[in-house]
Design a protein around this nucleic acid. Structure first.
Length: 428
RNA sequence: GCCCUUGUAGUAUAGCCCGGUCCAGAAUUCGGCCCUGUCACGGCUGAGACGCGGGUUCAAAUCCCGCCGAGGGCGCCA
């Protein structure tokens, strides 16, 4: 079976009139008008109209919507509203037939439930709205890689199967590793810090895992994290990196992705910079003025973040958190050891990223582990690297899926993840 | 773990509150017939549904209970 194409649909144009071409794709629509018929066919690059008439009408035998076809035909001018040329069919070959009933409407004229769409995710990609979300995701990833590469960050890949769950924090997924207990990594934190020893600036874009039974539009058991770690940078320096990365993402997608924006019905607005920087203490004062009283050292609950999000719409940094709210590796401030060199990047109430300056002195790090009732013995491998010339360093982790929801103006990460994993969804 | 909402054809929905007018209605999809410029083609025609189980009642899609599924929120989330 010959499956070759001479052209992608985007390569076809009206100046090719009279030329014979072969292209392939999926039948979007099929309109039979007695002794003639119109087909619209889509490939990944676009859609075009095919006309069938006269003796060729027998070519329509066995055709239905969403089947894959290979069409040879001749380019001619068109009277269609949406096309200035069309393909007069000479031969239509059905490469694979779509079997009805299909579980969702792939055209998207009727928007199917997210549940049905996720169960038929591959077919959902025929819906241009969904496809555009994932094309945008591709551009976002490539923008992030560009920005970080320009800033001399090296992309790394750290292990996802790890041997120790002693770091505290979120629950991990356990698994059997040839008879030993292993876990799925919840973050590249320790590995990326270690890599600053030789590579100075590193980043990773990867899936990580948290075994939390969260039921919200912003949590998944498997999520994609963008992480950086950089030697000789303080927390404000990596905040600048994060801010320019975000601006680049919005600027590049808003400029390049016109079709995608049109398909999702959302215009990407490049945020103003610099982002507002609000200290934890300022946030407490603002909450107090809104009758939400907190003591220094209290963590900000969802209701508090929603209030802050009302005050600071859009992107803003929440900085200088109390040390007691931060993990063991975070560095304190010089002028006030109860405060940390740390930040969260917020979009309204939504936390997108958190990061900060890390401790690089092994003795301080050991002391902090004990303070947080963690056993340094469990961190022996990690601590050893701190004896090999660990530079002062800072970094952050950014939730890519959450960033995507902000970029395209929706409020559920399941829309921007191909096959989301949550406590109630393991398949497909 | 707690709370709220919800389940009607392939899809997406009307009906439910206020039981009888519903052997469940319109759309789209799918099948058949007609149609030579459609473009959400049109016309005629056909097929297709009350999540499961129990209860109340003369009567249940509608009210109640249980189960199952789905959506969302809180909490959790170095």
């Amino acid at each position: 079976m010959d499956i070759s194409r001479t052209h992608l649909i985007e390569d076809l144009n009206s100046s090719m009139e009279g030329q014979n071409i072969i292209f392939g794709g999926w039948i979007v629509d099929l309109r039979k008008l007695g002794k003639m018929a119109f087909l619209t066919v889509r490939d990944v690059t676009g859609m075009c109209q095919v006309i069938v008439k006269g003796d060729s009408m027998n070519l329509l035998e066995g055709l239905n919507r969403q089947s894959v076809v290979r069409i040879s035909g001749k380019i001619q001018t068109s009277k269609a509203k949406d096309f200035d040329f069309e393909v007069a069919a000479i031969e239509i070959q059905v490469l694979a037939k779509a079997e009805y009933p299909l579980p969702i409407d792939p055209i998207g004229r009727l928007e199917s439930d997210i549940d049905n769409r996720l169960n038929a995710r591959a077919l959902d990609m025929r819906n241009q709205k969904t496809a555009s979300i994932f094309k945008l995701r591709h551009y976002v990833l490539s923008s992030i890689r560009e920005t970080l590469s320009e800033k001399k960050f090296i992309e790394i890949t750290t292990p996802k199967i790890i041997g120790s769950a002693s770091e505290g924090g979120a629950n991990l997924f356990g698994l059997d590793y040839f008879g030993n207990q292993a876990y799925l990594a919840q973050s590249p934190q320790l590995y990326k810090e270690q890599m600053t020893i030789g590579l100075e600036r590193v980043f990773e874009i990867s899936g990580f895992y948290r075994a939390e039974k969260s039921h919200t539009g912003r949590h998944l058991s498997e999520f994609t994290s963008v992480d950086i770690e950089a030697a000789f940078m303080d927390y404000t320096d990596v905040m600048d990196v994060l801010e320019s990365l975000i601006i680049d993402v919005f600027r590049k997608t808003s400029e390049k992705c016109n079709t995608e924006q049109e398909n999702i019905g959302h215009t990407i607005q490049v945020p103003d910079s610099p982002f507002e920087r609000v200290t934890y203490s300022q946030a407490l004062d603002e909450l107090k003025n809104n009758d939400l009283k907190l003591e220094f050292g209290d963590d900000l609950m969802d209701s508090h973040l929603r209030k802050l999000g009302d005050i600071h719409t859009g992107f803003y940094f929440l900085t200088d958190w109390p040390m007691k709210l931060k993990p063991f590796y975070i560095h304190e401030k010089d002028d006030d050891p109860t405060l940390s060199r740390s930040f969260d990047l917020q979009y309204g109430y939504l936390e997108l990223s958190s990061g900060g300056r890390r401790l690089h002195d092994p003795e301080q790090l050991k002391a902090r582990l004990k303070e947080q009732e963690l056993d340094p013995v469990n961190f022996a491998d990690h601590l050893e690297s701190f004896d090999w010339g660990m530079p002062p360093h800072s970094g952050w982790g950014l939730g890519l899926d959450r960033l995507m929801t902000v970029l395209i103006g929706i409020d559920n990460v399941r829309e921007v993840v191909l096959y989301p994993r949550d406590p109630d969804r393991l398949k497909p």
